[in-house]
Computed example of a mutant assay.
Amino acid sequence: MTGFDLVLLLLSFVYALALSHLLSRLGALLVARDRVQFSGLLALAMLNAVTQVYIGWLAMWDFRGVESWDLYTITLFLVSSILIFLMCVAASPETPEAKPVDMEAFYRANYRLFYGLYLGLLAVYIAMTGVYLLTPTPELALQQSLGNVPFILASLLAILVPARWAQWTAGLLMFSMSTAWAVIFSHTLN
């Protein structure tokens, strides 16, 4: 087993926990749907959280060529997966037994936390770009660092402007840019 395999195995557990947390909360919301006040913004945040789990896992492929994994590098990858887990928590309301669930109120109470965690994730991603210098594709270091700028701007919009238009704009930008990243990335798989 290579260093890459060990790191991927560790992160896969965290990604699985993140996805299972979010999906179990979503399932509970579906079962209790008669007591749930729906929020499109929270549904979008949940979708964005799932997308980040997927992208975090997919992005590991670029690092398969790293020959030597040091503690700093492994820690960066672990911290990124923990931040993704916490994003899933920040987007997933509990469904208490026999009580109404106000998804909009949950979103309003947690959107700054959600986007703040995302900003933290982006900062870790920028720190991780130095690892690209150890791969067969070192040019990705600058490309990925600059590619994070629009995501940072969308997150700042959501954190700084509480208006619904800003929340929808930031959420839709996050989803569309993440989806575009995944589509573009899929062409690099070989």
Results as ranks from 00 to 15, higher is better:
E67G: 14
V101G: 02
T135P: 00
I84E: 02
F151Q: 13
A98Y: 13
A141N: 04
M87L: 08
I152Q: 07
S145F: 12
A98C: 09
T75V: 07
R112G: 04
T137G: 02
L83D: 05
S145D: 02
L71K: 13
L133G: 06
P96E: 07
P100I: 13
Y115T: 07
L117A: 08
A154M: 11
G147K: 12
V89T: 05
F85D: 03
T75G: 05
L133R: 08
S80L: 13
V66K: 02
S92H: 12
T135H: 04
N148P: 03
A105V: 05
L86K: 12
V89D: 11
I126S: 03
R108Q: 11
I82H: 09
L78D: 01
L83Y: 05
G120K: 03
V131I: 10
L113K: 12
D102H: 07
D102R: 06
V66C: 06
L78P: 07
P136G: 10
Y111D: 06
N110E: 11
T73Q: 15
A109S: 12
S145G: 04
G65I: 01
Y115G: 01
G147V: 05
A105G: 00
A127I: 11
V131G: 00
A123V: 10
L117G: 03
E104Q: 14
L113N: 09
A98E: 15
Y118F: 14
A90P: 10
L153Q: 04
L140N: 04
L146G: 05
Y118Q: 10
G147W: 15
Y132L: 09
S145M: 08
G130H: 10
L119E: 10
Y72V: 15
E139R: 12
E139N: 12
L142F: 03
G65R: 06
M87N: 00
L113R: 14
Y107E: 02
I74S: 14
N148G: 09
L134Q: 09
A123K: 00
